[in-house]
């Protein structure tokens, strides 16, 4: 599945965040977007995911203009995990994850065995099967985050856009989520995630998009993008990049 943005202009009311940004998401790969706070990562992800309508330019999904496609059809192919979803009260984990099946259902349609299987698989993949009966509002931040990931998984889309999927998670669960995203990629899905942890981005991504002030400043394989010069430039923080002794991936270390 090819997803790309061409000359995107997007923002909020009088504030223009993205101004003529072009970006291509490589199909079947794991892409990570990095950049400082407020540089427009979420805005880009929301535009690519059809949550925000661009004022100029267009998002193309397999060559078709995304914002002209029927929303339900898009939701069957493209799953989005927003940065800050609302937690409704009185909804159990299983019920919430089941809402991820909505794009595949009609209002007159019964719950199908296929839906049941998708929800069960999503609960297992996000490691929350044992939480299924708990009300979501009673969960910890990290447990909730995994519930949202499970909802996006239950949607069973070819492409998955996730805004900071590892926030609130402890190190073990962060790694687990990243490995899950790698498995999805290995299964042929296109995965895009916004991450703040540069070393995780460098280690797990196939493709890195570095942003600053609403622009894409570099794209490419981790070792091409995660360099001393670029990281110092993008984050305004002097840092060294060494090679990870275990994986060979670039490792960013702020200079003392």
């Amino acid at each position: 599945m090819r997803l790309e943005g061409r000359d995107l202009v997007a923002g909020y009311e009088e504030r223009t965040v993205l101004d003529g940004l072009s970006v291509a998401v490589p199909p079947g790969r794991f892409t990570v977007i990095i950049g400082p706070n407020a540089c427009g990562k979420s805005t880009l992800l929301r535009t690519l995911g059809r949550l925000l309508k661009p004022r100029g330019g267009s998002v193309l999904l397999d060559g078709a203009v995304l914002h002209d496609l029927p929303p339900r059809e898009v939701a069957q192919r493209l799953g989005v995990l927003p940065q800050a979803p609302l937690v409704p009260e009185g909804v159990t984990v299983a019920d919430l994850v089941a809402r991820g099946r909505q794009p595949h259902q009609r209002w007159w349609q019964q719950w199908s065995p296929g839906d049941q299987a998708a929800v069960a698989a999503a609960l297992a993949d996000a490691d929350i099967a044992e939480l299924a009966a708990r009300p979501v509002e009673e969960l910890s931040g990290g447990q909730r985050q995994r519930v949202w990931i499970a909802m996006a998984l239950a949607q069973q889309t070819e492409a998955l856009l996730l805004d900071e999927p590892t926030t609130y998670l402890d190190l073990a669960h962060q790694v687990e989520v990243l490995r899950l995203l790698e498995r999805l990629r290995d299964g042929g899905r296109t995965v895009v995630a916004v991450l703040h942890e540069l070393n995780q981005a460098a280690r797990h991504a196939d493709h890195v998009i570095a942003m600053k002030d609403g622009r894409v400043v570099a794209t490419g394989a981790p070792h091409e993008v995660v360099t001393e010069q670029l990281m110092t430039d993008v984050f305004g923080l002097a840092c060294a990049v060494v090679t990870c002794p275990l994986t060979g991936a670039p490792l960013v270390i702020p200079r003392p």
Binding site: G79, P85, L86
Partner: peptide, 10 residues
């Protein structure tokens, strides 16, 4: 679940 999540679900 919020406006964004609802849009994301189509």
């Amino acid at each position: 679940l919020g406006d964004d999540a609802a849009r994301g679900l189509g």
